[in-house]
């Protein structure tokens, strides 16, 4: 049997001659596609805003205090996941699990706050159909929310895997945590731009 057809042999393939693991390069290429996705959405936002005869202030039509709270939550979760990485690096399992659980709690907190925000808007009959502003607002924040859900699934999976000895002791586990962290920081960066663009400016 050819070695290239053996998945185990493929996983243990010698170095990539680049100094970057295949997994990390894969995560960065995925993030590159995500950057293009959000770049198109931000372009749509700019085009719609510049073409509109009037554009509302975020303070007048959106709940800025709740969005500020969500910004604080998301930045905090970026710190907790990088702390989880630090603990995984030190092979401190309980520390890793504690920080990763904190990341998950903050992620759910973000979604709960967002649900309150959406709920208040829906109660007033406001939806994507209301205006161009709300259409782009719901599209961008909704897609970002879906990315949060994806992050919760990955981070939850890693938290579970850390409780299984075979996974925790796998030399590739730290790389997986780093990959999940890269994705989560990217989601944070998207919000860093969404927050002023939609709510403040």
């Amino acid at each position: 049997m050819s070695q290239t057809l053996n998945p185990a042999a493929f996983m243990n393939n010698p170095d990539t001659h680049s100094g970057v693991t295949n997994a990390k390069l894969g995560v960065w290429l995925f993030l590159a596609s995500e950057i293009m996705l959000f770049a198109t959405l931000f372009t749509s936002y700019i085009v719609l805003r510049m073409g509109a005869t009037s554009w509302p202030w975020g303070w007048d039509v959106l709940n800025v205090p709740l969005a500020t709270l969500n910004t604080v939550i998301l930045i905090s979760s970026s710190v907790t996941i990088v702390m989880a990485y630090a603990k995984a690096y030190d092979k401190n399992k309980s520390g890793f699990q504690g920080w990763m659980a904190a990341t998950l709690a903050l992620s759910f907190g973000f979604l709960v706050v967002k649900a309150f925000e959406y709920g208040a808007e829906f109660k007033l009959g406001i939806g994507p159909h209301t205006s161009v502003f709300y259409a782009i607002y719901f599209t961008m924040t909704g897609l970002h929310g879906i990315h949060i859900l994806g992050g919760i699934a990955v981070n939850g999976g890693l938290l579970y895997m850390s409780s299984v000895k075979e996974h925790w002791e796998n030399p590739l586990f730290l790389g997986r945590v780093e990959g999940a962290g890269l994705y989560w920081h990217f989601v944070d960066i998207v919000w860093i731009f969404l927050f002023p663009a939609l709510y403040l400016l």
Binding site: G19, V79, P171, L172, L174, E178
Partner: peptide, 18 residues
């Protein structure tokens, strides 16, 4: 080798900086 690569590729965390 990929495992060794992974070890080389890891970033040493700096908690104070974070």
């Amino acid at each position: 080798s990929n495992n060794k690569d992974a070890r080389r590729d890891e970033h040493r965390p700096d908690v104070g900086l974070y």
